[in-house]
Write a protein that binds this DNA or RNA. Sequence first.
DNA 1: TATGAATGAGCCTTCATTCAT
DNA 2: CATGAATGAAGGCTCATTCAT
Lengths: 205, 205, 205, 205
Amino acid sequence: MATVTPPTRPALRERYERRRREVIATAARLFAQRGFQATSMSELTEATGLAAGGLYHYIESKDKLLISICDELLDPLLERAREIVAEPAPPAEQLRALLHAWLAHIAGHRDHMLVFAQERHVIEREPQWRRVRGRRKAFEQLLDDVLVRGEADGTMHFEDRGFALLTLLGMVNYTPQWWNPRGRLGPEQIADGYCDLILRASASA
Amino acid sequence: MATVTPPTRPALRERYERRRREVIATAARLFAQRGFQATSMSELTEATGLAAGGLYHYIESKDKLLISICDELLDPLLERAREIVAEPAPPAEQLRALLHAWLAHIAGHRDHMLVFAQERHVIEREPQWRRVRGRRKAFEQLLDDVLVRGEADGTMHFEDRGFALLTLLGMVNYTPQWWNPRGRLGPEQIADGYCDLILRASASA
Amino acid sequence: MATVTPPTRPALRERYERRRREVIATAARLFAQRGFQATSMSELTEATGLAAGGLYHYIESKDKLLISICDELLDPLLERAREIVAEPAPPAEQLRALLHAWLAHIAGHRDHMLVFAQERHVIEREPQWRRVRGRRKAFEQLLDDVLVRGEADGTMHFEDRGFALLTLLGMVNYTPQWWNPRGRLGPEQIADGYCDLILRASASA
Amino acid sequence: MATVTPPTRPALRERYERRRREVIATAARLFAQRGFQATSMSELTEATGLAAGGLYHYIESKDKLLISICDELLDPLLERAREIVAEPAPPAEQLRALLHAWLAHIAGHRDHMLVFAQERHVIEREPQWRRVRGRRKAFEQLLDDVLVRGEADGTMHFEDRGFALLTLLGMVNYTPQWWNPRGRLGPEQIADGYCDLILRASASA
DNA sequence: TATGAATGAGCCTTCATTCAT
DNA sequence: CATGAATGAAGGCTCATTCAT
């Protein structure tokens, strides 16, 4: 009980937080490679160098660990996205900025993204995932808002805006499955590629 | 061992095959909802109405069952795709036909697709999945071939053909996550939507 | 899930119930000797001759097993007690009959009684123990009723009836801690001894 | 090892002893409520306000802590009992004095008594409990001696002295399960009640 | 074909205890 | 004196699979 109580003294606290992030990152890597359920806690302890019980200083449970991975993925992204849409730029520019931020985030959190995608069924069903679901929804809403503003100011014309958004989500969410850091394309280029595709679609109606 | 010996007499055989397909479909549904690993065989027996042992008349193992689900997804799709590209039609038309067949297949195998997507890490890593990996690769190759022929005959111009293909794969593979049969869009419209998007991109370079 | 589903076919069902009772009896013995918490499930599997998982065909969980032990203790005793008080006999005779039945039951369920006593703190606190608590309370109420009737018809006179009842409960409940089947005193003698003590107390006021 | 080294300087020593007694009392309370095994050391640290390691300055181990609880229960009681029987009073008076001392002690150590009772199986079996067992035995022997002297001087007549003693032990040991300090009956009244019951029994033969 | 009892390895987690600080 | 990170054995339980019936 109350195993996961971060220390209150600043020095210890900082070390604790650092290690916790390491644990989460390691877990994300393993889960992405082998699947969440297929990864045993003992594989995780081996990978972290901690012993069975030691791990539980930093996490509450395997399930909560999964949630933490998703939080680390969504929270900063959503925050950045909110900054972007708060600035007074034209919709098309905002869309491009959002995509740049998004793809950059994906490039830095490939494992997190893969885990997030493949554990879709858990996220969708269980009540303790409500917050995560809300964050994802909020991010998608932000994207849609930009498209709406684009239609409003006459710079974008979609035959079916909802469908366009889903198309975009599909492309982007699929990216971590093929992208790798040593590949030909960087996140910026990919973001531009997606952006061009959508804007071109919005120009034709 | 060798529990799975389909009967040889035609009448029995047919019933056997029908039940086997039912089992696979039920499994696909459960796996899609709860995840492959998270679904226990006893949940599956409950859903099929069979008892623990009875199930094993129709499947060899849980893993083989997963492979069967993917086979039911990929085999007919690949076959149909080969027919399409064997016909003497211009690339753009073939692409549209492929997308129509593909989306129609997805509409009829949503659960299979979801399972296929979320078990990516297994499919990618284990040796017994070679055949499945080969089929997927073959299908993607067929798509690429069409684009190549489009470039060759001057009807398509891609800035980056590989990227375009990945974009397309992303959109399509994401579809089962949002599409539902009672929704506004049917598989044909979606296929057309994707096709237009790609062709428009290929027209602009 | 649904591990504990007794078979429906009568023949199997009977064997199942018999084995289940064996498991419960074995568990009662071990728990009485070593304590509930201190007895591991693997000690129990060893004692039953079943393997780890096989045990769980007959029980839902270790906790539920504890409840079953108490049920096997209280249910038949309460039933018998109700029969006794339903008969039209004078209170003193009923009291004696109750004590005879009670002590006979204890003699046949010494382990159950010891477990019941030493797990008092669980029984008292947890909600899933409500039914067991209710049964115990009901039995004690039956005893008190007899004393009340004894006072009513003028054959018993207690200075403090509640205290007399507690005294009786103390004696009886302590019995399993010292009694053994090969000892000098049989359950009938013990019952008579307790009965005489109480009746003598009730005669003096 | 040898963590438990009480300080030698008197002032520190006193504070140390006080805290140690607090720890034992807190432990007794928790163990009585939840059971010994079911209470984790971390629950105990939380209740004492100490951290994991700090606790071990005051106790050697969880098991030794249990022994300490029983020592705190039995040692002063046995000492007091010896004083009582050392005085030159008639057996019946000594018995009453013993019961008064006993019940007063129980009233002040309800938690200790409950723990002592419910951990019977440990006390009975393990070698390191020999001393505790000896104390209990010694106390019971003292009681029996008084009854023997009562029989010897003709003031008591038991049909079965051993049985009478067990009856008494049952009543008294059961007391902590129902008595509470805010109840109607004080320890003296209870002691008198028990004493009267036994003496009345001893008068009738 | 089908049943369901049985297996046993392996799962996640807890917990008493130690020790560097 | 006290902290809290860390250990690692053991805990209860699950689950894919087998096999006598």
